[in-house]
Nucleic acid binder design. Structure first.
Lengths: 191, 191, 191, 191
DNA sequence: GATGAATGAGCGTTCATTCAT
DNA sequence: CATGAATGAACGCTCATTCAT
């Protein structure tokens, strides 16, 4: 087994366990076990548990960004672009519930404190596309003239809540419901 | 020092520490220390840490509900009622950031798993008022015909996100901004 | 409630709880509760838990001694005297299982270490009657010429074992079985 | 230091401390200390304290049984067989006082409650040999026609008492005294 | 004198991390 | 390199004892 494969196994095991049982329910020994490596091996790839957790988070972001951008057409109207991004993100969460659960665990924990500013996608890559969209929307007077942070909240707030409800089984989202939900988000931010 | 005062000190200390550092970062000994009591004393008032955490949550709910209902006029139009409740809740969180942070910690943890369904205010009293409002709004065709769960998400999602941003200092909400935010939420759910 | 009554209640409660659940299962607070007194009150009558436990033991001894001597006729033959004492003791244990269980708990614990030498009845009063009997039996060549300690062992060993078995329900002793058991003990020590 | 050596050290330390001070007087930390290992190390070999205690007991049984059967001749007369077993057992206790003290602690404790019925050696292997002997003795009319439980009591009761007295230094048993004691036990049960 | 709330040392146990193999 | 046995600090919790009322 070569190096990157081992790292992947560790990351996968950690994601599963933490998503399912929280940080509390995922001791390093258990992660090592599930990954099929020795406990000490984890420390060859990650300095300590905090670093593992943070790296895992970054891995996640890098998976979400391309999923969101697939089929994205920057020259379409703002509304359509918003609907595309929102739908893609919500779909990603629904199709990757472990990722979603991990994200929630991470954000709501001391581990994620330093990353919190960045919301779902941080101020890095993934977020830029939304930021640009919002800035364009505001300047073109298509969206409400509200601080970016609030536009984010109006978009991601419902989106995350709805994803959680679906994953926890409180509701079952089909394509129609997803579309209507994202449209309702749009109603919240549009002029 | 009489009985209720000690209980209050413990509750206050636990709220502070848990809101600030999470459940993990608030050992019983530290809570006792901050409360100015012996470690064993906590167990005179709370059977164990889980019970302390759950009781703390219930205390919180009982403070939020009346704050939200103050000045509530059930005979006013649906929109105004929604704005009242949303504004009151957001204001409460802004004025009681510790309560808000605790609530978030609680919901996102095994402790709060059983309460999760109930969203912010549980399916108990506090939530009923929102549920009734939504049901009335839908049946009177003032609100979108969406599942209740989604209407909740469209309302509370942004509200909580905005509260978090304010408390973490990413934005400073004044009365005007609060009003515009809640109105944007309304735009999301209204027909 | 006057002083001696309170003491009695404490002693009774402690006996019950310790006999039933062992020293481990009988915290001072529980004893106080069962006795209907405050936790601190126990310390007016007993310096600490060890003293309570030792005093309780002495109380017990003082109840057993007269029970054993009732109807004892020092001028009867040695065999008959032995049978009387053995039967009386076994009967006492069967009729007072709590006392017996406590005695066992006590002897087999660090608390009883210093008393162990004295066997069931210590080298005090209660034991003297047996010692005298054994000494007389040996010197009159009615009993085996064995060290007193061994004669004690041959008498009390089976007696206690049989009492325990009865109390734990492994056997049900009736008058006939009691008599035959004590007679078998006699066979063990007699010439 | 390899694996079994560490386990052995822990078992030895636990045996010593528990035999000497009882379960209460042998905290895990103290056992670890005496064994020369870290506190957590014990838990690699024993799930928890209860399991350590029960395993220790089983270890003991497995040492006693063969010691008792060494040189045992099943075709010798019943009396001789009884004398052999009794002598061997008493000798074992005298030569292994720690084992004896541990056994007593164990039987008289909640830990040993489930094993109590089985007397010294449980109803497993070790005990069967005695049971068979008694059953044969009764059916051949060599022993008194008493319930097995009582025959056990008449045999083990004195044996254990005498072992205890020797170990506590109240008497010093030599070969002659051992023989005469076991013979006295035989007198108790024989016809 | 009686109380019982308060105490804190001490318990059994977990787990992130290390390091000899 | 990879391992996993070993570690010990830190946790949640109990309970004998004290002392203000």
């Amino acid at each position: 087994m070569t190096k990157p494969e081992k790292r992947d196994e560790i990351v996968r095991a950690a994601l599963e366990l933490i998503a399912e049982h929280g940080f509390h329910g995922a001791p390093m020994a258990m992660i090592a076990d599930r990954a099929g490596v020795g406990a000490g091996t984890i420390y060859r790839y990650f300095e300590n548990k905090d670093v593992l957790i943070a790296d895992l988070y970054r891995d996640l972001e890098e998976r979400i960004y391309p999923a969101m951008l697939e089929g994205y057409a920057p020259d379409k109207p703002i509304r359509e672009r918003f609907l595309h991004l929102g739908t893609a993100l919500l779909r990603y969460f629904i199709n990757n519930p472990l990722d979603f659960r991990y994200l929630e665990q991470f954000h709501n924990s001391p581990y994620g404190a330093e990353f919190r500013r960045d919301k779902i996608l941080g101020k890095k890559e993934g977020c830029d596309i939304f930021r640009e969209l919002f800035e364009e929307g505001v300047s073109r007077q298509v969206m409400k003239e509200l601080p970016l942070v609030i536009l984010f909240a109006l978009s991601f707030g419902p989106l995350l809540a709805v994803a959680r409800d679906h994953i926890l089984g409180f509701i079952s989202l089909d394509d129609a419901l997803i579309a209507r939900t994202i449209e309702a988000c749009w109603d919240g931010i549009r002029r």
